[in-house]
Design a protein around this nucleic acid. Structure first.
Length: 495
RNA sequence: GGGGGCGUGGCGAAGCUGGUUAUCGCGCUGGCCUGUCAAGCCGGAGGCCGCGGGUUCAAGUCCCGUCGCUCCCGCCA
């Protein structure tokens, strides 16, 4: 057994403390589709015991919405259940197949695609939005066994003929440039759209898992007067008569809220990095899944927490996004295996890379990161590995130091890419002041930040998961830009 | 910041050592076709070969510059 799994499995250390690892390998509350009320667990959960007092009746909410939507239309996915009846469908014309005496139109709506049958070629163009009225018939020859014989059709919004992007074709045959240049239209492509359906599950499961552990969600400002990490890589913005910067991380605000007494916080928000890299794994604006937690003992506790988050996300994606995974021929790791993600120190990682690649390494390069994940797959059956105890010089000043000039920090590498970076933070004022000197930083510019520690702050730490990178790696996409709705890179600020 | 590769109709590509009207698939369009499911068959439209300059009798092809894209490395989520 890899030594890193110790922290997850041994319970001796955790039993006397609050546990956050126990739900690690269970699907988050509403991700499990077992027929039980998604609120059942919360009702038993001490943190959610009063949910019915503050929420309108769920039955009432569901009833209002269903009655409203039932009047609107039938969804394509509902057709097999309403064979024999007359329905109204609305959606986009995905494809037209005209065979002379009969024409087939593939209609696309948010639930999927279904076949419409016309006696003659209908007067519509691909991608037009239509509303049709017709009878639902079972037919062996129809895709999915059901089709709608159209009695009347209304073109709700016609589409021009010069479609700039092949919406109804395999996006694998289209260049990234064309996908991004025509982003508005490219997003209609079902495979491309599926990326963002899956991404939504990641967001949901991340938040639900943490809420279940008594984390409080916060939203902080993305504008800041000065940078905390030396001022490099910050975008400046005109702010009335002065200049401010876009934050590269919510770091200081997360820590502020820890010290303010929330103890456990998370934030989902954009982070900005004004760095001129031009690679398939960098964008200048990304969504950071940020977590911070008080009363931890080391970075091992943070890895425990992230293990649980990953398991919740993988379980949720498996439960909700099988079609989206299929569209990219992708698989998510078994949530049960997350507890076996190896944990290796930075020094051990270098040794492993040297051994695996057959060449001596002094720093872990992207090639080394790929080698480490391959190694993890071989030894533990998961394509992920935690690397901890990074040298002091490679980590920011607020990282908690450890013996031998190491730090209480870690990264998570998943399928060959760094998706998380985190650490325990220095929470003692005197220690922080010493470290500022060592990093040659001026305490004057960090006055607000330092006040957190001057007046008492519990031991704590946190990490950030790159949402787009995680999405990219789950689906096996070639570039992080594909996993970004409207990517902002060195050259691109449109659409 | 350093180093590769690529720009050819709306999309994806071919065009080898320079040589006549620039080719193919998808899409679009006209025609035929009552069971398609990437429908099929016959016809058609659509390109100053990224842009600027040079070499040459002759440049999509060679050279220089420029813009754009893409990949690897540094660094990072």
């Amino acid at each position: 057994m890899p030594r890193g799994t110790r922290a997850c499995i041994s319970s001796a250390r955790h039993s006397r403390r609050e546990s956050w690892t126990s739900p690690a390998i269970q699907a988050p509350t509403s991700c499990g589709a077992k027929g039980r009320s998604p609120w059942a667990r919360l009702r038993r959960n001490r943190h959610g015991r009063n949910w019915w007092c503050v929420r309108p009746s769920r039955t009432l909410m569901r009833k209002c919405f269903q009655e409203w939507s039932r009047e609107m239309r039938t969804l394509v996915s509902e057709l097999p259940g309403v064979v024999g009846s007359t329905v109204t469908l609305s959606g986009w014309v995905h494809r037209i197949r005209d065979l002379g005496g009969v024409s087939f139109v593939v209609l696309r709506d948010r639930s999927g695609m279904g076949q419409l049958v016309f006696d003659a070629k209908p007067d519509v163009t691909v991608e037009s939005v239509i509303e049709v009225h017709g009878s639902v018939a079972a037919n062996e020859k129809a895709p999915g066994g059901v089709e709608v014989r159209v009695q009347s059709m209304r073109v709700v919004s016609p589409a021009a003929l010069d479609l700039p992007f092949p919406v109804n074709q395999d996006p694998g045959k289209t260049s990234l440039e064309s996908i991004l240049d025509n982003r508005m239209i490219a997003l209609r492509n079902p495979s491309i759209l599926s990326i963002f359906r899956l991404q939504s599950t990641i967001l949901r499961c991340f938040a639900e898992y943490l809420r279940g552990l008594d984390f409080t969600e916060i939203k902080t400002s993305k504008l800041i007067g000065t940078g905390t990490e030396g001022g490099t890589g910050l975008f400046s913005v005109d702010y009335f008569d002065t200049k401010v910067y876009l934050t590269q991380s919510p770091q200081i605000y997360k820590q502020t809220m820890i010290a303010a007494g929330l103890e456990r916080v998370f934030e989902i928000g954009p982070a900005y990095r004004a760095e001129k890299h031009d690679t398939p794994r960098h964008i200048n604006e990304f969504i950071s899944l940020d977590v911070e937690m008080a009363f931890i003992e080391s970075e091992q506790d943070l890895m425990d927490l992230e293990t649980g988050i990953l398991a919740a996300i993988f379980a949720g994606v498996r439960a909700s996004n099988q079609k989206d995974l299929d569209a990219w021929k992708a698989t998510v790791p078994d949530p049960e295996l997350c507890a076996r993600i190896p944990r290796v120190s930075h020094d051990e990682a270098k040794e492993i890379v040297s051994k695996e690649t057959g060449k001596k390494v002094y720093e872990i390069s992207p090639e080394g990161e790929r080698a480490l994940c391959d190694w993890a797959m071989k030894t533990a059956g998961v394509e992920a590995v935690f690397v901890f105890a990074y040298p002091r010089k490679s980590r920011p000043f607020y990282t908690y130091p450890a013996e031998n000039n190491r730090t209480k920090s870690f990264d998570l590498l998943f399928r060959g890419l760094e998706v998380t970076s985190g650490s325990m933070r220095i929470n003692r004022y005197d220690m922080l002041m010493e470290n500022l000197q060592a990093f040659d930083l001026n305490p004057e510019g960090l006055k607000d930040y330092l006040s957190i520690f001057k007046y008492g702050c519990p031991p704590h730490g946190g990490f950030a998961i790159g949402m787009e990178r995680l999405t990219q790696k789950i689906l096996g996409l070639a570039s992080v830009k594909e996993a970004t709705l409207f990517p902002r890179d060195r050259k691109r600020t449109r659409p």
